[in-house]
């Protein structure tokens, strides 16, 4: 096990979306670097399975539905008060609802904003509150997307939600800087996940066409997790308010 650098030394991290491919890899990676995790998700069984696969370190699970943004704080706060100080948070949960512009109705956009943006902000404002946060240190990472930077047909709501994340995190970074809490986004290129496989409705051929446009070829969840690990870790002292694009050169073209 390589724990040279990026060692959390038992610091507490809250994670969402850990039953997704990228979220699971991030959870495994930060747990291997001695972080104590709080895993949030909708499915109790999936969370327990995830918990069982992690190296033991007083990890906790919280069952909550991120679609219901009004409930998140009430569900999460009592546990975090017991576990504080909370060092960091990574928002990996995300949904995509592919629709043409003409079918991108407000409720369809709202569903993506709720999970991709607002649920994450609800948790970030709890985790970074003076009551909860560690003293003069901390790190928040939101998983964004290259669709925060480029457009894609059928993805108005998803692009909007990811652009919103990047803008919100910049504001968060400036506000939290006096308390040395960093806030950043990581924007993955196309990585095969349960979201891209089923929710996006793309065919295998369409997915392969997108993958072929990445100059470094196909990426994996571990490529994303490595970037998140560094931004979250106490070794990140001076990177805040930025977006790390991890896309094999896709947006460089």
């Amino acid at each position: 096990m390589n724990t040279i650098g990026n060692d959390f030394q038992g610091r507490r991290i809250v994670l969402t979306g850990v039953t997704s491919v990228i979220g699971r890899e991030i959870a495994m990676t930060v747990a291997r670097h001695n972080a104590k995790l709080v895993l949030l998700g909708r499915n109790d069984v999936s969370l327990r399975n995830m918990l069982a696969s992690l190296p033991p370190n007083d990890h906790q699970i919280v069952v909550t539905d991120l679609n219901n943004t009004g409930l998140i704080k009430d569900v999460l706060k009592p546990l975090l008060l017991e576990l504080k100080p909370i060092y960091g948070f990574c928002h990996c949960a995300g949904v995509v609802h592919t629709r043409s512009l003409s079918m991108s109705k407000p409720e369809m956009i709202q569903k993506q904003l709720d999970v991709n943006v607002l649920a994450g902000i609800e948790i970030a404002r709890l985790v970074t509150s003076r009551e909860m946060a560690a003293d003069s240190e901390g790190s928040v990472v939101f998983i964004s997307s290259i669709y925060a930077h480029i457009g894609a047909a059928g993805q108005l709501g998803y692009c909007l939600s990811k652009g919103a994340i990047n803008a919100a995190v910049r504001a968060m970074a400036v506000e939290l800087a006096p308390r040395r809490i960093k806030a950043n986004t990581v924007s993955p290129g196309f990585v095969r996940t349960d979201m891209t496989e089923s929710q996006s409705k793309l065919s295998q051929e369409q997915m392969q066409n997108i993958i072929d446009k990445h100059p470094l070829g196909e990426g994996s969840a571990s490529d994303i997790a490595r970037a998140v690990l560094f931004l979250l870790s106490p070794d990140n002292k001076w990177i805040t308010g930025t977006d790390v694009i991890v896309d094999g050169g896709y947006t460089a073209q």
Partner: peptide, 16 residues
Amino acid sequence: GGWDSIGVLTLMAELD
């Protein structure tokens, strides 16, 4: 006219 790749993806999502 709307039976193109995005129209088809939208149809699939709506049927689901």
